[in-house]
Nucleic acid binder design. Structure first.
Lengths: 302, 302
DNA sequence: TGAGTTTACGCTACACGTAACTATC
DNA sequence: GATAGTTACGTGTAGCGTAAACTCA
């Protein structure tokens, strides 16, 4: 088995015509070069260099080896370059999966920062919810999954139940607020207890949010009457604005929607959801992934 | 500094998807593989493999490295072969990959001649079809790949599409013939047009042959009813002999099968397939490879 | 429980550098 | 005698295999 290191030395010897000069060029001692060439000749089973007095000449086999060495060493340095680019964030692709309408501000901010700092990295974004997004993560279809959970959720609906072997990077804890039509009796109240809304028609969000809403209300002793349910946050806001009901929404989601005709109220016993980034342990050490996670955290801290 | 030995191991791991399987393939213990990969990841400074439960997956950097590895290792083996040949050992080893049941006469004839002329050269034979055989060629797992193509094939199924950087040595152009049961109405006709067999049940060969058969028939305005399809040429002949249908076969394949109970007919607008030998430019200059190619050509011209 | 991966440990082997020796001009 | 190459030797490191711990299906 020919070793690349030997080829590097052979090439230097061929270029300089001397072991000593090659040693100087390679930054090692001259006996080291001598030994390497001896080892190479032994592993190929044929002489490569002709030591005629003081000068060094190549045999035909030596010539052949030097000829091949060029391509092989070029391939090796190309491989090193490419890996170094990936390791040094001059290249790299990160596939991000986010829950729908979840991070209208978070993801763009993070990606803008990442692009500014490392123009070579490319990030793609797809929308999916756990457990689908976690499947994608495990299946190699993405590197980072954004998800959220309700810290007090019952174990059987908590998606975090399956996250034991994942790297979970908490990004932010988002307060939930109640949104009511602007002419609602509580519109000016500032804060409200969930129990005060027992008789209201509700507009719910995604299935998990809906389930969570029901849990919270039942803890307050009533079952909410849910007239509408949609994944689409702007649509929820529109429905509230049209006076069709009340809703709970993550504060962050409210910030980036023009909430015409509505008023928002703090919920008295504060309810929060936690937004986290998930990845695999090995992927967390991939530079482009680590950088993206850092940027997401940075964007969340803003 | 990336070492070639590491690349060899990485490639085996990528190909098998497991450290244990790679170790078996490489003839070493599994912890050795584990250590080599650890060392490679350390020397590149970035994770290359994702250990997710039981399966091994490559990171982007790992993919890049495997991509480069093919060329580097092919270069190394080419260099080794050339030096070995120049050393006068004539212990040149040529690994030949042929499409299945393709060259029952061609390969044996060529190898017999080669052995007579150069007793030192050893040739091994494995069966695989393009694109697998071409992958083996590029990956350094063989020196010569035998393949065939239909000159009129549509570009998207023509394997020659990926042969731009290979040395393509045409060996022979093989006429296709139609084989029918001996009591078939056309058994004595001598020649036949494909269109006359529109209503027959067909027995097809390998997937690519089958695709080609459908193409040819559709050019004649009908879709063949294919009742059986098998890679095994003697089996095809047996099915025809049993009266279960008609088939098209390469003339060479018919010659070396006892075609009991069948009759063969020339196809009126002649259809041919082209059998070629593929190798890499560097390998084409290795004496043992060159000699094998020459012998193949000679055997085909016979 | 079983297959697969990692970790720990002892061993060997290899490669380097220093230093002494040899050979050529 | 000076420059270049080889040989000899001590040291450090790196890789392997065996064996044991660990993990996921």
């Amino acid at each position: 088995m020919i070793e690349a290191r030997h080829l590097r030395v052979l090439r230097a010897v061929a270029a300089t015509g001397s072991f000593s000069a090659a040693a100087r060029e390679l930054g090692c001692t001259q006996p080291a070069v001598s030994q390497q060439m001896k080892a190479l000749e032994q592993s190929t089973g044929t002489p490569l260099l002709i030591r005629t007095g003081r000068e060094m000449r190549l045999t035909e086999a030596g010539e052949a080896l030097v000829r091949h060495a060029a391509g092989i060493l070029a391939g090796l340095t190309a491989a090193e370059e490419e890996v170094a680019a990936l390791a040094g964030l001059r290249a790299g692709r990160v596939r991000l999966v986010s829950f729908p309408s979840g991070s209208s501000t978070l993801v763009p901010t993070a990606l803008a920062g990442l692009r500014a700092a490392h123009p070579g990295t490319r990030v793609s974004l797809v929308e999916a919810e756990p457990p689908r997004s976690v499947e994608m993560l495990r299946g190699g279809d993405c590197e980072i999954a954004l998800a959220f959970r309700y810290p007090q959720a019952a174990a059987d609906v908590d998606p975090a139940a399956g996250w034991d072997d994942l790297v979970v990077r908490p990004l932010l804890r988002d307060r939930l607020v109640v949104m009511v039509p602007h002419d609602h009796r509580l519109a000016g109240a500032g804060t409200v207890g969930i129990g005060e809304l027992a008789e209201e028609p509700w507009i719910a969000g995604c299935p998990r949010c809906r389930r969570h809403l029901v849990e919270v209300c039942e803890a307050e002793g009533f079952t909410p009457r849910i007239d509408f349910a949609t994944d689409d946050y702007p649509a929820v806001v529109g429905l509230v604005g049209a006076g069709l009901g009340v809703a709970v929404l993550p504060e962050l989601a409210v910030e980036c929607v023009r909430a015409k005709g509505t008023a928002t109220l703090e919920v008295k016993p504060a309810v929060r959801r936690e937004v986290v980034a998930l990845t695999l342990p090995d992927l967390a050490r991939v530079p482009a992934v680590a950088a993206t996670l850092d940027r997401l955290e940075l964007a969340a801290r803003r």
